[in-house]
Each structure stands twice: as structure tokens, then as C-alpha cells.
Computed example of a mutant assay.
Amino acid sequence: MNPVTLQKPDDILTFLADISLKGAGFTSDCLLDYVLEEGFTEPIFLNASGEDADAFYRGAPNAWALYQVREWKRVLTISGGTGRARRVQITETP
């Protein structure tokens, strides 16, 4: 998958609605639901890169392996990849 960078909240939320994550570690039927549950209601930046056979975009496999979602000082990072357990980390930047 080609890397994706988005900087408009509506585009980011629409993109996340089409992502589902299966496999080992963190999973989600709809990544948007998880992002909203964590309080990222108006994200200002999204970066997606890499490739993961257990990640799906609009139902098709081999979506992105790394997702970074920023909302002001908070950053949500979801990392994984084929053969690796997926992890989630939320950090606050200074």
C-alpha cells in the first residue's frame, strides 16, 4: 500500500471508518469506533504506512501496518505488520 497522509478531520474520520484490523494483538472491526472511544473526535493529522495482511481497507486485505493519528498534543499509534502482534500506544507531546 502507498503511504497516506491526511490533514482534514472529516477525511481522516471517513478513512478510519473503512479500516478493520484482524490477527494477533489489537483488533478492531472499525478503527473509527476505537479512535472515537479514545477521545480523538477531531483529529488533525493521519499517517498510514507499511503493509499488513491482517489489516483491511474497504474489505480488501493488505492495508496499512502503521497508523498515527494526532489530535493537537495527543498521538495514537497503532503498529503491527504481517507476522507481528499489533500494538496500540497513546502519547502526549510537549
Rank of each mutant, 00 (worst) to 15 (best):
E38L: 12
D18H: 14
I44D: 15
G50F: 04
A55E: 00
F15D: 10
P43S: 08
E92A: 02
Q68H: 07
P61H: 08
S49A: 15
Q68V: 11
A65F: 09
F56S: 04
L13S: 00
R70V: 15
T41V: 12
N2M: 11
E38P: 03
T91R: 12
R87F: 07
W64M: 09
L36Y: 03
L31Q: 07
L66C: 09
T82H: 01
A17M: 04
G23A: 10
E38T: 06
G83W: 07
I90C: 04
D10K: 11
G39V: 08
T91I: 13
Y57P: 04
S49H: 13
L13I: 13
A48Y: 10
G80S: 02
L76M: 14
N62Q: 05
R74H: 08
Q89F: 01
T14K: 14
I19D: 06
F56R: 04
M1A: 09
L21I: 15
A63E: 14
P3S: 13
A48M: 12
G81E: 02
K73R: 09
A24W: 04
G50T: 07
A24K: 08
Q89R: 08
A63S: 15
Q7R: 10
I78K: 06
R58D: 08
A55F: 04
I44A: 10
Q89S: 09
T91A: 14
L13T: 05
D29L: 11
T41G: 10
G50C: 05
E51F: 02
C30G: 11
F15E: 11
S49P: 02
D29W: 07
V69K: 03
P3G: 11
P61Y: 09
E92F: 08
R87L: 09
I12Q: 05
L13P: 04
A85I: 01
R87Q: 11
Y57F: 15
L32R: 10
F26G: 04
E51Y: 01
Q7Y: 03
I12W: 05
E42V: 09
I19R: 08
V35N: 01
S20T: 06
L36P: 01
R58N: 10
F15K: 04
Y67Q: 02
L32M: 07
I90V: 13
L6Q: 08
N62P: 03
S20W: 06
